[in-house]
Design a binder for these strands. Structure first.
Lengths: 155, 155
DNA sequence: AATATAATGAGAATGGTTCTCAATTAAGGA
DNA sequence: TCCTTAATTGAGAACCATTCTCATTATATT
């Protein structure tokens, strides 16, 4: 699990109370990292654990977490938002690279290299100061690529 | 306006009829390119023009357009999807770079350079074959950057 | 023109998310 | 520790973009 006290600090610094519900949501996120969970999935996991929490509270909590940089809200166009822990929410970081397989739907996280070149380029050409970015790469994972080759008989 | 007959071809090739409603939605998209319109915005523009069309038809049409590569569906996390014409839907192309200003909310389209390096990198490291990508860059446009500097008095 | 198939549109339904508000809990001072 | 105040919680209602339904209408083919 992540450092719990820095989580607490982050909450208090931003003027929010440390509550049991917020700690519970946080612990689910930690235990399931680096998964991208929906609000409802988190709600169900907590309920299965016999921790009583309201769905509204889960949404509210995730909203706060995202605002203060504990989580990132990501959207894979399947009708609901997902939340993932920011890698190291003490330092500045912004990486949201997801490899989304069009075959099996699996989502993998990827590295954040090379984006700096692109960002510098954009600053030069557009005078646009990039604060954050979201990159989604759609394609076929190794497994599905293999499967496709066999099925289509392509060389 | 774009070449209308290739639009018609694209529809027929994919087994869809050419209807007046589809032509109307297409013409709104052409006239407003490169804007990113919501289904409702398109519906309103058509209604103002006294062209009768149902909102469901607009949604359905945009769904088809996106499926057959006439439009791209983009999402700026403001609660509704937007649609934009694919640059040249006859050839293979995939560029969805948007500069989203956190100050004024304006969305600008950016170039697609440098992504090839990143894609090659991902193929090497993850054996993941990229078909398409979506890149959203959040930050401050030239104007808002200027405004921020004045307000905060930072050098 | 006639028939079969596809498209349309009005409104209902859906479903993820946000809102409301009364009850509960946390925070900080005395 | 107790008290006061402000913040948080939770159940359900409300919201709202999008999808679905199905009777009507238009398109394509014979």
């Amino acid at each position: 699990m992540k450092n719990n006290s820095s989580f607490k600090n982050k909450l208090e610094e931003s003027g929010h109370s440390f509550t049991s519900q917020r700690a519970e949501v946080y612990s689910i996120l930690c235990e399931n990292a680096p998964a991208h969970l929906t609000a409802e999935e988190i709600f169900i996991k907590l309920t299965q654990r016999h921790l009583k929490i309201g769905l509204s509270t889960v949404y509210r909590t995730l909203g706060i977490f995202t605002n203060i940089g504990i989580t990132d809200k990501v959207d894979f166009d399947d009708g609901m938002s997902r939340y993932e822990l920011v890698e190291n929410f003490d330092g500045k970081n912004h990486r949201h690279h997801h490899l989304i397989c069009l075959g099996c739907g699996r989502v993998e996280d990827a590295l954040d290299d090379l984006m700096e070149d692109l960002e510098n380029d954009v600053l030069e050409k557009f005078s646009f100061n990039i604060i954050d970015h979201s990159v989604k790469l759609y394609g076929y994972c190794a497994e599905c690529s293999m499967k496709n080759k066999i099925e289509t008989g392509s060389k």
